[in-house]
Computed example of a mutant assay.
Amino acid sequence: MSEVLAERVGAAVVVTLNRPRRRNALDAAAKAQLHTTLAQAAADEGVRAVLLTGAGDAFCVGQDLAEHAEALRADPAHAFDTVERDYAPIVRLLATMDKPVVAAVNGTCVGAGLALALACDLRVFAEDAVLATAFTAIGLTCDSGLSATLAAAVGVSRARELVLRGTSFTPADALTWGVSGTVVARADVDAAGRALVAELAGGPTAAYAATKRLFAGALDAALAAESREQAALGLTADHAGAVEAFLSKQKPTFSGR
């Protein structure tokens, strides 16, 4: 079964993360398929807008930690190569492709999942979706561009608090703090997302592309810095212990090392 689905709807493409049993956690196959699907949409001149969503009751819970734990055990020095190799190119595509991208956040959206949603141009949120940065819960800082996109959306002070404390928040909170988007009932997310992407697909695509280029300036520096920081944190005892605790459904204990 494909871990990422693509459906052509007129001049738009609906891209669906398709690992519902894993709450659309991103493993190697899903990341590769998502990058390929987005690259194809970006290169197709007949596609004028993209909708990104998730199957089941989650949008995306970020990295598949079971796969990550295996990478840590095998070679901690390279376990975070995925940040630069996989996540950064996906985020660049979402943020810089010459057509608008809408995130239909149909459910839980945390970690790299939140970063994907914020890399999109516009968002539709299910009113009961759970949002969180989540990284510090496993001894990490943010990646996938979140240090730039979250700060741009809610301000540096609020972004710092959301990352350091890692507490969850609601779509209503997100809109109040400055994240652009619309909040609808969960049952209406797909229809609302499709309506918005259809509207954008009929709009001035060149003007949309120019607007995206103007707003994308700080992203590359953030992605490079995040990659360096995550690689270093991947070697800490705090991170290794927190991942194992998460997988065994225990509360992690942090030593600061």
Rank of each mutant, 00 (worst) to 15 (best):
A210M: 08
A210D: 13
G166K: 07
A153M: 05
D128C: 03
A216D: 10
V189G: 08
A198K: 13
L162G: 08
T167A: 14
L175M: 11
A115D: 05
R213Y: 02
V156W: 11
A207E: 14
S157H: 14
A185G: 15
T205M: 07
C120T: 12
V179R: 02
S147W: 07
L214R: 13
V105C: 06
A129G: 04
L122W: 07
S157D: 15
T136C: 09
D143V: 09
G139S: 02
A153L: 05
G193K: 09
L122K: 10
A137V: 10
A117R: 05
A119K: 04
A152R: 12
L116G: 04
A192N: 10
A185K: 14
A191R: 14
I138N: 11
A210Q: 11
T149A: 01
R123W: 07
R123N: 10
V130P: 06
G111T: 03
L131T: 05
A137Q: 13
Y208S: 11
S147G: 15
A209L: 03
G113L: 09
V184D: 03
L140I: 02
G217D: 11
R158D: 06
F169T: 01
G139N: 04
T205E: 08
G181H: 02
A134Y: 15
T108K: 14
L196K: 06
G202C: 05
T205A: 14
G111K: 03
A159K: 06
A207G: 07
D188V: 09
R160W: 09
V163K: 10
G217R: 15
L116F: 14
A174S: 00
R194F: 10
F125L: 01
R160A: 15
F215H: 12
T182G: 09
I138A: 06
A191W: 10
A104M: 06
A148V: 07
E199P: 03
K212V: 09
A191S: 14
E199V: 11
V163P: 08
F215N: 08
C120Y: 09
C142E: 13
G193N: 08
A159S: 15
R165M: 14
K212T: 07
A159I: 02
V183W: 00
G113A: 05
T170E: 01
R160K: 15
V183N: 00
R123F: 02
T141Q: 12
L131W: 03
G202K: 03
V156E: 15
V156M: 11
A192C: 11
T205H: 12
T108W: 07
A201N: 00
D190K: 15
L131P: 01
G139R: 06
A206F: 03
A187K: 10
G145L: 06
A152I: 03
R194M: 09
A159C: 08
L162Q: 12
G181T: 00
A126Y: 00
D143S: 12
I138C: 11
G107I: 05
S168Q: 14
A134T: 11
D121I: 09
A126Q: 01
N106Y: 04
A206G: 01
